[in-house]
Each structure stands twice: as structure tokens, then as C-alpha cells.
Design a protein around this nucleic acid. Structure first.
Lengths: 344, 344
DNA sequence: TTGTACGCGTTATCAG
DNA sequence: CTGATAACGCGTACAA
């Protein structure tokens, strides 16, 4: 049974088998696969027939070993259960795939130590390039990458000192922009709820706070944060907690992501609060659902898919020896104002 | 060797370097890494120091080539932008990771031909096992897998004739269960909206239909389907279309997934329809948000994460030569009845 | 255009 | 417990 199959060294069809069948040497078969135009039409066809006939599938391990080209791009993301990262992944996969690269992805569970371990794993596969999330790698991790001498792209955040290349957006500016927009919408007492306080969320809060402080409108008890993983349910909890401690005063809430914002919106409905009348709500990440709730939810849109595409494209370009151009790219964001902050 | 340094193969620290540094032979270093207990405490420590000192990272290509063990599990899913599949992926990653396996994942974009191409790619990496989605592989694809003689698990659907192992749920039964539940809830004129009509969705519809037909309550014009990709927006569209063509008659709608159901729910609110009074709604997949909308949305919960976990565990067991037990596992589903169908 | 010889970094096998 | 030797399957470098 195949459930108990144990692969021995004799089963698979090898390049040599194809060569023998086609009556040519191994290297010719190799050429047909990798540099078809360096082989005459006739032999190419003969070899191709042999390949099809025998069902030959090249052994990438052997190829990588011999050529020092793995055609693998390593990718490390903090979580698979957050659409924010899977959208970026999609961009990476789409570009890498059409360029003939495989993607080896690992999940770091939001841990720098786990990331270091995973990077080690990835490096053992001889990736030709690496994509990492954010800029909080351990020193050891950074050293490993440096030593590997491969292109590295850090995505999601905009970093002051990227290891190599960087594609992201400024979460600080985004947080600041939300504060500005809520103020211009006529709200005056702004609260914040946040969960899974990673670097990006902290930056959003910092930007938000900086604007409020410059206006003398920041108060610590208008902020409700937790390190627990974000969820819709938690959004409801945090919102209720914030209202409990600052209710009747806070008139708008910036939720650090759309999970929380949705939770807050649904909870406010259950509490009999009118959004945007009694309370304004703004999220972050602009999930598809946010545009369709009633009232629709204001949020900050970040070009996630494009981020993945750009990162992958920079890598492909670099690997092809091309001119990468700007090594640090700010892809920008957009505050999508909808009914939940339509106060005036 | 001459003026031009050989950039390719000279950079990395190899096993031989470590061996030399530690004053042992290469194979001993290999043993320290793979079978530590077959080496004396003293040499083991010396070698470990050398490894750390030189920052040695094993070359997996060489290892795979020599040992015919890649420690790679290939996974093919139809889409990265559907949480349904990323949840399963998470389960696979969690189990594979803790068992020392890497996961090589590909996105088939819901195409059997693309899947075949991707499987070819995966096979070239000498995976020790493979996880595929559904049972609609091309014949060529199936032949490739058979020839590879590795454990294969098909997930998501429950198949009549799995290639090897199978973990999933019966989408037919789930669709039937929804019809039963809506009928017992007091609804009598049931409609259906569906998008991205893949095998699983068609099965849900078939099950739904079979129950209604057995009661003489099925009418073709109560069904609105499209092959377009599913989305919340599309859910609104389909719902409006269905109401346009059967409004005032249909009193409950089964939406083939929660994206559509959310779209239908929000659209019904905008149309001034009362859910569950005027119209009942039931989705599929039980997204987190469905439990928190107002009214909360009834849906069918499928153990996605557990599906990934189970598939990976079966593979690990098989690879370790253990007893897999049932090769075909029905993980079941649960109809979560919430406010959107609370009619009586 | 095609082929020969060798090496890539690691592990299996068999000795000692 | 440790080591020498021979693969593993393919690509590079050079030769013909």
C-alpha cells in the first residue's frame, strides 16, 4: 500500500534513464529541459518524447546541489489565520509562480525566536531570496541572513534601517491620519482599542496619539489595549470596557483592526448606541465586509496584495541582475470614510 | 581557481568544514545532527561547538539526494484568499512543523489542470507525502501520484473512491441538513444562492434539493447560482436577484457560503426586510463574524483546522510505518442555528 | 551541436 | 563508537 511506501533509490526515472532511452547523453537531456534552444530541433524532440514516455520528473535536490540554484523563495509570516498576511502571500505566490519560483512559507506565530528557528530551516533549503515580515528579527537571525548573501525583503512596515530591501506602509502615519479624519469629522473625544499589540499596532497607536497630544486631546483612559489575539468577539469586549470606563465622554473609537471594529460595531448595536450618531467607529485593514455592514465601516485600506507582488518583483529583478531601483518602497494607505464616521 | 573566484559553490560552510574544525570525519558530524545518541558525549560536544562556531547550516538538497528523505509534505489548495483553506493549512502546518516536516504549498486557483502542473512541481521536490483538495484531479495527475508511491490525503470532501487516504465531510448531507432545519424552523418556500460552483457547492445544492424534492417543495426558479468567485457583494446581488424573481414567495434562503450569506443579510437590511421574520437566512462555513452580526447568522460549521490536523497526523503516522486506521474519515459538521432562522 | 569527466554536500554501507 | 568509500542525480567546464 502506498500508505506504507518507503522510497528507495531505485524507483524513480532519472535523467540517465531518459538519456539512454533517447540514445543521447545525460547532459543533452539536461539541456533540453533547461536550455532548449541549445539543442537541435531533432534531438530535442526525441528527448522530449523520451521524457513523456518515461514520465520523467527532474529531481530538484540534485539540480540544486549541482547548480547552486534552488528556485526557491523563502517567506516568513506571523500567522496564517490573518487575512492580512494571506493576501500578501497571494501576491508573492502569483508573481513567484509565473516566474518559475517555488515559495517555501513558514508561520512564525508572531515570535521572533520562532522566526529565527524558521529562517534556519528555510536557509537549509538554499533559498535564493527571502521575504520577512516586519523589522523585529533577532540579531542572530539577521546575522544568518547576512551570511547567506541573498536578497532579503522586509514587508508590511516601513523600516528606518532595512536589512536589504523593504516594502511597506507607515503605520504611524496611518494612525495619525485616522485621528485627523475623526477630528475633521467633528468628533472630539477619541478612544482607541487594540489587541495583539505587535509593532505595527503600536505604531498606529503612536501616530494616533501624537496627533491628539499635539491638540491636547489625548487621555490615557480612552485607550483599551490587550496582547491577546485579536478577534471580533474581543472587539466587542474591549468596546464595552472602554464605554464602561469612558462612556458618555468618548464619541469616536479607532479600532486597531477591522476584527475589533466589527466587534465594536455589532456590540454598539446591541447596546442601543447609534453609529455614527452616538459614537463614531473606524477600523484598519479594510476587510471586504466592512464596506457592506449597516452602517458601513470606515477603515484604512492598505495595498496588501500589491505589497506581496512588489516584494516578489523586486526579488526577481535582483536575482536577474537587474536594477531594483528604490530599495525601500512606501506603498501608502487610504482612509476609506464610510457611514460609521459620517457625523456631520 | 584563477582570477575569477568561483562564486557559486564556495561560500557556505559545509559538513566537511565542521568535520575538519572538530577534528573528526564528516560522517560523524552527520551523526551528531541526525543520530546524536550514536555518538559519544565528548565528540558530540566538540562537534556541536564547531557547528555553532562556524554557523553551519546543513544543505537539505544534499541530504535529500543522499538519503532519499526530503522531510517535505506537498500541499495543493484551490485558493489562498479563502479562509476555509487557510484554516486547513494552519492545521497542516502546526502538525507538520512539530514533527520536523516542511510544507511546500501551492495554489491551484481552482483548476485541475493547474493542479496537475503544480503537482509536477511538487513531485520534483521529492515530497514524502502529498495533500490535495477534493477529488477532481486529472487522470494524468492521479497517475503521477500513483507512480510516486507516496501517501496521499485528499481533504475537504468525503470521496467515494479516494486515491489513498481521505479526510472530509459530506457536503451533500450538510446541504440536506440545512433544508431539514429550515423546514422544521417553519419556513416552507426555500431558495438557494450559490457562487463559485465547485464540486462541494454543487453537492450542498444537491443535498438541499433532494430533501425539498422528496417533499415536493423544490422549484427551479428559487435557485440563483453563478460560477463567478464568491464575495459579500455578490451575495447581495444574488439575493436581490432571487427576491426579484421569487420575492414574496421565498421565505428562507440557503446561501452556499458565509460570504454570500453576509451579503444577503446586509442587503436584506437595506431592502427593509426583516430577518428572520420576512426571510430566513442560513450560510455555510460558520465564519467568526456570523455569530456576531445582528441578527446573528445561522451557518454550517465544519472542523477545518481539525481537518488539516487529521490529514497531517495520518501522514506522519503512515511515514513512520504506523497503523493509520480508517483511511477515510468523516469529520462531520454542525448546523449552528442562530437568530437569522429563528422564525417560530 | 553534443559529449566526457568531475564535483556539488550529504548519507548508507560496511569495516575496524 | 568512528571512519573510508561509494553512491545520490544533475549541471558546469571544457573538449570534440
Amino acid at each position: 500500500m502506498s500508505t506504507r511506501a518507503r522510497k528507495k533509490h531505485s524507483q524513480a526515472v532519472t535523467l540517465a534513464d531518459v538519456a539512454q532511452y533517447a540514445g543521447v547523453s545525460g547532459i543533452t537531456v539536461s539541456r533540453v529541459i533547461n536550455h532548449p534552444n541549445k539543442v537541435s530541433q531533432a534531438t530535442r524532440q526525441a528527448v522530449q518524447e523520451a521524457i513523456d514516455m518515461l514520465g520523467y520528473i527532474p529531481n530538484q535536490s540534485a539540480s540544486s546541489l549541482a547548480s547552486a540554484r534552488s528556485r526557491v523563495i523563502g517567506v516568513a509570516i506571523p500567522s496564517l489565520s490573518n487575512i492580512v498576511f494571506t493576501d500578501v502571500l497571494r501576491g508573492i505566490y502569483d508573481v513567484a509562480g509565473t516566474s518559475g519560483y517555488k515559495v517555501l512559507m513558514v508561520d512564525t506565530h508572531y515570535s521572533a525566536l520562532e522566526e529565527e528557528r524558521m529562517v534556519r530551516t528555510l536557509l537549509s533549503q538554499s533559498p535564493e531570496a527571502m521575504i520577512l515580515t516586519g523589522g523585529e528579527q533577532t540579531q542572530a537571525c539577521e546575522r544568518l541572513l547576512l551570511k547567506a548573501k541573498i536578497p532579503v525583503v522586509q514587508i508590511m512596515d516601513l523600516l528606518d534601517e532595512p536589512m536589504d530591501m523593504n516594502v511597506g506602509v507607515s503605520h504611524f502615519e496611518a494612525g495619525a491620519a485616522v485621528a485627523e479624519q475623526l477630528l475633521s469629522a467633528g468628533y472630539g473625544q477619541l478612544g482607541f482599542i487594540g489587541a495583539r499589540m505587535d509593532k505595527r499596532v503600536r505604531e498606529r497607536l503612536a501616530g494616533f496619539k501624537s496627533v491628539l497630544e499635539s491638540r491636547g486631546r489625548f487621555w490615557r483612559n480612552f485607550v483599551q489595549v490587550t496582547d491577546r489575539p485579536s478577534s471580533i468577539e474581543l472587539g466587542g469586549e474591549l468596546f464595552r470596557a472602554l464605554m464602561g470606563q469612558a462612556g458618555g465622554v468618548v464619541d469616536a473609537v479607532f479600532c486597531c483592526n477591522d476584527d475589533l471594529a466589527l466587534g465594536a460595531l455589532f456590540e454598539s448595536q446591541r447596546m442601543g448606541l447609534d453609529v455614527p450618531g452616538d459614537i463614531g467607529l473606524c477600523g484598519f485593514n479594510d476587510f471586504e465586509v466592512s464596506a457592506f455592514t449597516n452602517p458601513s465601516l470606515s477603515s484604512v485600506a492598505v495595498p496588501r496584495y500589491q505589497m506581496g507582488v512588489t516584494a516578489a518583483e523586486m526579488i526577481i529583478t535582483a536575482l536577474n541582475g537587474g536594477e531594483v531601483g528604490q530599495k525601500r518602497r512606501d506603498l501608502g494607505f487610504e482612509v476609506a470614510l464610510r457611514q460609521s464616521t459620517d457625523h456631520l
